[in-house]
């Protein structure tokens, strides 16, 4: 159809940027979630307080406000980032804060007896955490992480407001040029929806891989 020929290439270009934001943001968020999630559990105040402040601030404020704040405030502190990098940074910080809670609660859900058995076998805290606890916590983290990933995808649309030409921005441009509002936005929504399903399917695959030793037996 002529409609698709006109719009699809531009939209797919925008989608590419959206995916860059999603992947970059997700990697940063995962790293921050791991550090902050573990930090919140630490008995040392020096580790706990920064982690708590980070999580409360980025969960308690609006993602769009965070985006604008970083976009306008960073240059004042001498840091000049392009819109894509700012987007990845803010999305990562925002999703990482929610992810930290997922990490923390999954670790807390592993039975206390596992820690005790590890200690009774002379494992130190670090060995117990990485070899006994985390392998059991990881499968529990994946379903909520999948939801956070879809949230992150949706948040990439916000970066259009600091003039990055990702999918939403591109759709707006196309709309302004052709005024075919309904079909265009319908197509855009369909693309986001499809992308979300692909991400969720990916996470489910990862879930199956991580729990492969527990399936199909007595």
């Amino acid at each position: 159809m002529a409609f698709l020929q006109t719009h699809l290439p531009a939209l797919l270009d925008g989608l590419r940027t959206t995916l860059q934001l999603t992947v970059g943001g997700a990697l940063l968020a995962a790293a921050l979630a791991a550090v902050a999630g573990l930090g919140r559990r630490s008995p040392r105040r020096l580790c706990r307080w920064p982690a708590n402040v980070y999580v409360e601030v980025f969960r308690g404020t609006s993602a769009l406000v965070q985006l604008f704040w970083f976009y306008f405030a960073l240059p004042l502190f001498g840091v000049s980032l392009p819109a894509l990098a700012t987007g990845v940074l803010v999305l990562g910080l925002n999703s990482g804060a929610y992810g930290a809670e997922v990490v923390r609660s999954a670790i807390a859900a592993v039975p206390a007896g596992q820690w005790e058995a590890a200690r009774a076998l002379q494992l130190d805290e670090r060995q117990a955490l990485f070899r006994v606890i985390l392998p059991q916590a990881l499968p529990m983290m994946l379903p909520p992480a999948g939801n956070l990933l879809v949230e992150l995808l949706k948040n990439t649309a916000l970066v259009s407001l600091i003039t990055l030409s990702e999918l939403t921005f591109t759709a707006q441009v196309q709309r302004a040029a052709t005024l075919e509002t309904v079909p265009l936005f319908a197509l855009t929504l369909a693309i986001y929806f499809a992308a979300a399903q692909v991400l969720l399917a990916g996470v489910r695959r990862l879930e199956r891989h991580v729990t492969r030793h527990r399936r199909g037996r007595a």
């Binding site: 759709a171 936005f185 929504l189 986001y192």
Partner: peptide, 21 residues
């Protein structure tokens, strides 16, 4: 499912441009 999986911003634009039509 559709509304929850897609950005609020697009839905907002949609209504903003379509309702006047």
């Amino acid at each position: 499912e559709l509304v929850r999986s897609t950005p609020l911003l697009i839905q907002l634009y949609f209504l903003y441009y379509v309702l006047p039509e």
